[in-house]
Design a protein around this nucleic acid. Structure first.
Lengths: 144, 144
DNA sequence: CAATAATGTAAGAGTCGTCTTACTTTGTCA
DNA sequence: TGACAAAGTAAGACGACTCTTACATTATTG
């Protein structure tokens, strides 16, 4: 089981996100997205490559290996859950929610994430004026 | 304005917490609490001392300066809010909530923390079966 | 197709945060 | 009160992560 640092998770997530909207991922793009210098992004990519998550030919583009893609996807999913909690439950502005999610997303347990997901579902259903609100969350939780 | 790293925030919080139940704080206690070696804790204390947050005489105990106490208190308060959210809203077991709070507590904005606080109040009031639930949170939010 | 722009790489330095090993000081108690 | 235990310190190492400066390769375009 690969154990990444928080920073490397950030880089992998960034690469994953870029790769979804662009068919090539360059070091420069990563650097810009993470607001670091190009050499810094490069060393990060080198670390990820050492772990087999990405590969890159000399002067070539960054390519996600299957394991890297999978992990990037997972990290991004966590990010989305947190962001959704911030926007939908706390009513935080999208832009701030995006930042804050970055800060909270590392190293959370599967348990907490699963419960956060359930909680969000409960909240969302509640939006239509349904008064059962959180009690439904509690029931679901007890059912697992 | 002092800008601590996440780790140093952890150390300061630890020192603050120990100081609340014990009238002297030693490097060894800090090391044990943070699960690091004694020299590691020592270098962390040295960093905090450099920032004027704590002081320590040679071979002496660690003492929180006023600024350190204030900041430690603030950091701990954030920790408590997150822990409460995890236990009271998500119904996470206390022990896990304690850990997870540690991971989420760094670098959150005042806005997010304030809203989380309000949200918790709304949830708590909702516990008695009051159907207004989250709508009260939304109202309060708009009123600020 | 050659000059230039864009992109990527190398080398070297510095801080943070951790460790190990070894040493010093302080406190205790026989 | 002196030996030993407990606590603290020093020195040196290492990886992560960042920077700057300088160099190499690739793409573009005039």
């Amino acid at each position: 089981m690969i154990r990444l640092t928080a920073k490397d998770e950030d880089y992998l997530e960034t690469i994953y996100r870029i790769s979804k909207t662009s068919d090539t991922v360059g070091v420069t793009e990563v650097a810009k997205a993470r607001k670091v210098t190009v050499p810094t992004a490069r060393t990060a990519v080198a670390r990820l490559a050492k772990d087999g998550l990405v590969r890159q030919q000399h002067y070539g583009k960054i390519i996600l290996n299957p394991s890297g893609k999978k992990l990037g996807e997972e990290i991004f999913a966590v990010h989305r859950i947190l962001r959704q909690f911030l926007t939908d439950a706390l009513l935080i502005e999208p832009q701030l929610a995006e930042q804050e999610a970055c800060r909270m997303e590392h190293g959370l347990s599967k348990t907490t994430l699963r419960r956060l997901r359930l909680f969000l579902e409960a909240i969302t259903n509640c939006g239509g004026g349904d008064p059962k609100c959180l009690s439904s969350y509690r029931k679901e939780l007890l059912a697992k």
